[in-house]
């Protein structure tokens, strides 16, 4: 089974999910993000889920946990590209992903990470 590649641009790790996420792939992705974060000391993580047609509670928890873990390591996570139908379903299901920043697309997500990780550096 394929892996989700993680790219690093400046201080940001980017994981773009291009297929349906099997459980194992999601677990691997979480693991890989944490590894990369430890290795590179990146300040921000962007997860792009534009291609995801379904986010169930398992995946929702996986994403939420990843954000919590990255926060512990001093990095911020932004989730971008949720489809309207997926967002409606998540709300109906009762998953609100509290505490995770979301953005419409990759560009806005990167903007937000740049601004928010820069602020921290200046403090």
């Amino acid at each position: 089974m394929s892996k989700i590649p993680i790219l690093k641009i400046e201080d940001i790790l980017i994981a773009s999910v291009q297929t349906e996420l099997h459980d194992r792939m999601a677990e691997d992705l979480q693991h890989d993000i944490m590894e990369e974060l430890g290795r590179t000391n990146a300040r921000g993580v962007l997860i792009d889920v534009t291609a995801l047609a379904i986010v169930d509670s398992f995946l929702g928890r996986m994403i939420g946990d990843t954000a919590k873990m990255t926060r512990m390591m001093g990095a911020k996570t932004v989730l971008v590209g949720l489809q309207p139908a997926v967002a409606i379903t998540m709300v109906e299901l009762g998953m609100e992903l509290a505490g995770i920043h979301t953005a419409l697309n990759m560009e806005k997500g990167i903007d937000w990470l740049r601004q928010n990780t820069k602020n921290r550096a200046m403090q």
């Binding site: 967002a87 409606i88 709300v91 609100e96 920043h101 979301t102 419409l104 806005k108």
Partner: peptide, 12 residues
Amino acid sequence: IKTIKAAMLLGT
């Protein structure tokens, strides 16, 4: 409220 939450998930 659900509409607002769903919009927030999109980042708005």
